[in-house]
Amino acid sequence: MDIKQLQYFMAAVECGSLNKAAERLYTSQPNVSRVIHSLEEELGNPIFLRSAKGIILSSFGEQLSYYAKNILKNVEHMQELSIDEKQKKLNIASYPSGMLSNNLAKFYNEHREENLHIDYKEGTTEQVLDYLSQGIVRIGVVEIAKQQFAPFRHILQNKHLEFTLFRSGKFCLYVGEQHPLYQAKSVPFDTLKDLEYVQENEDYFTSLFYMGKFSSGALDHKDLKHRVHTDSDHCMMHMLKETKLCSLGVDFFSTNMAREVGIHAVAIEGCSSGILLGVVTKQNQELEEIEKIYLENLRSLFAGEQ
């Protein structure tokens, strides 16, 4: 059995006719019939039932078509892998972040002449770690509450991953130009309960539940006036820019980038450092040159140099 036999077989299945299959394959109908007949002889069972009206799959042919379709799909993926190896690749997963996606666009423009291909995914911390352990991505960017670092480290060990710290940060308030606090440098902690929020859906490892543990005040995140919940950073950015809603986040947004997108980070008085930001990779993984360049770019971004 070879790939050609399966390709001819599936063409006949999808076209419902040997003549139409021949047209699709740029060959003759007798040749298609001959290839399929050789497959039937090899497998010892009829694949098609022939009649004056054309061909229909036998019960054996129906089962065979399921496996043939999967085999041809996997062959296609293997061929794509061969093409991909000629490209410089960045496979990244990250927590939802407008700053990271904005920076990635700039990074692409800087390296677009280098045959660069980027696959960028967003998700919760657990989803990012799953992507890494399954080999779907090679770089993960995560935020971790200090209170949750012990269980986070345990998961890393089980999945044979390692974490590199880039910086630690404090909770802050993000507001757009429509918000009355847009020009403010800081707000007292106890005013947070009076504001209205657009907020990302909870991530166990970076939940706002831990915010009260890093402040001089007492705050139950359930008491906050959440008007919009979303797992879309695109939605988050538009809600901040077009409404008077604000969002609780971490002060990783660079000043230059904040100015570009019209989002301002307002410090929360009495809030200490409580969130760790860094990169996760597989243990002992040898990074490609483009990956090393991207990680240095991230270091620069979170150091406020961009």
Rank of each mutant, 00 (worst) to 15 (best):
259 R>C: 12
48 F>W: 02
209 F>W: 04
81 L>K: 14
106 K>R: 12
78 M>Y: 14
77 H>G: 00
193 K>S: 15
246 C>I: 03
41 E>S: 12
178 Q>P: 00
227 R>D: 10
292 K>M: 02
224 L>K: 03
18 L>K: 13
150 A>K: 13
95 Y>R: 04
95 Y>G: 05
255 T>D: 11
78 M>F: 15
39 L>M: 06
136 I>P: 01
264 H>Y: 01
97 S>E: 06
228 V>N: 06
289 E>I: 04
103 N>I: 09
72 L>A: 08
270 G>N: 09
261 V>P: 10
27 T>G: 01
66 Y>G: 10
101 S>D: 00
303 A>P: 06
92 I>P: 01
63 Q>G: 07
106 K>V: 09
168 S>C: 13
51 S>G: 06
150 A>Y: 14
252 F>L: 12
214 F>P: 01
114 E>R: 11
140 G>T: 15
200 E>H: 15
118 I>C: 06
153 R>C: 00
283 Q>A: 13
243 T>S: 14
271 C>D: 08
1 M>L: 13
292 K>S: 04
227 R>N: 11
159 K>M: 05
306 Q>L: 08
214 F>V: 11
300 S>N: 10
82 S>W: 00
105 A>Q: 12
143 E>Y: 11
278 G>E: 07
298 L>P: 00
114 E>I: 06
247 S>R: 02
227 R>G: 09
175 V>N: 06
168 S>D: 15
290 I>H: 06
281 T>L: 12
207 S>Q: 04
